[in-house]
Simulated scan of single mutants.
Amino acid sequence: MKSRVFEQLISSERFLRYQAASAYNNRKAMILYRYNLQLSQELFSMISIFEIILRNKIDQEMSQSDWLRDAVQSGGIFDTPACIKTKEIIEKKYRKIHRNGSYSHGKLIAELNFGLWTNLFQPNQYNAVLNTGKDISRIAVLSSVLPLINCSGDNKREQIHKVLGEINQIRNRIAHHEPICFNRRLGRHTRKNTYYVRKKYQLIINMLKDMSVDTDGLFYGLDHVLKICDKIDAL
């Protein structure tokens, strides 16, 4: 495809940053755009798998058949002003499934997004869970994660929340079709940079390992993130 047609399709404004990062070589700019798409697809797939494992680990730690439904009932652990947003999110999904006439605890879990599971490690939600005698921070040991998040101290809840927040950040960027092959700290239209992706990628890998997951086996044949990063750096 000619670069002029390509630019018209994706918009001049969007294509500009790829042109600037490629010294206005349109061929390289188009290649960079495609590499960014490949990188986004690969990383989003990994994050999706990570999200499934995270929510299942939390659910297993809770070890109650319908704890999410019970948590938002009258007198439930999230039935408090401090947890009102969490309660509203769960209730909305619960009502949606019930309207379809096919409720199950597993379906409710699947309806809740990454942000909800991340927010369970905020102080109010976490303490509400902790008051039941359950400690969801046990899902991870964080031994290999800490060097990547520059976090000191031994507040495990806070550390897990920070890690999940960083992973959720890049997830949302990909979901909103924002490019991830640039480092925004270096300027919006200046240069390509894969440090941001590499760091988030390593957080995902390390967090899974700290949840006792065999990442090599899990992502066998699926993980090409670092290879694509290398292609971007070499372009």
Rank of each mutant, 00 (worst) to 15 (best):
M1H: 15
K2R: 14
K2Y: 10
S3I: 02
S3T: 05
V5H: 07
Q8C: 12
L9N: 15
I10M: 09
S12G: 07
S12T: 10
F15T: 00
A21V: 02
A21D: 03
Y24M: 05
N25C: 11
N25P: 08
N26V: 10
R27W: 06
R27V: 07
I31Y: 05
I31N: 01
L32C: 03
Y35V: 01
N36S: 06
N36I: 04
Q38I: 05
L39F: 06
E42D: 13
S45L: 05
S48G: 15
E51A: 09
K57C: 04
I58F: 06
I58M: 09
D59G: 11
S65H: 11
L68Q: 00
V72S: 08
G76A: 14
P81Q: 10
P81K: 06
A82L: 15
C83W: 06
I84E: 15
K85P: 12
K85F: 14
K87H: 11
E88V: 05
K93L: 04
K96H: 12
R99C: 02
R99M: 04
G101M: 06
G101C: 10
S102M: 10
S104W: 13
S104M: 11
H105W: 04
H105L: 03
L108F: 09
W117D: 09
W117T: 08
T118C: 12
L120F: 15
F121V: 11
Q122I: 08
Y126W: 11
N127M: 15
L130V: 10
N131E: 14
N131I: 08
G133T: 11
D135S: 14
I136T: 07
I136Y: 07
I136A: 09
I136E: 07
R138F: 11
I139G: 02
I139P: 00
A140G: 02
A140Q: 01
V145T: 03
V145A: 01
L148A: 14
I149Q: 00
C151K: 04
C151M: 13
S152R: 15
G153M: 10
G153R: 11
N155L: 07
K156G: 03
Q159M: 04
K162T: 05
V163D: 00
G165T: 13
G165N: 14
G165S: 15
Q169N: 12
R173V: 04
R173L: 13
A175E: 12
H176T: 08
H177D: 13
E178K: 10
I180E: 11
N183E: 08
R185D: 06
T190G: 06
T190K: 13
K192I: 13
T194H: 04
T194C: 04
Y195M: 08
V197G: 00
R198T: 01
K199C: 05
K200V: 04
I205M: 08
L208Q: 00
L208H: 00
D210T: 03
D210F: 02
M211C: 01
V213Q: 01
T215P: 03
Y220Q: 13
Y220D: 12
L222G: 02
L222K: 08
D223K: 02
D223Q: 04
D223C: 02
D223V: 01
C229Q: 03
D230P: 00
D233Y: 04
D233W: 03
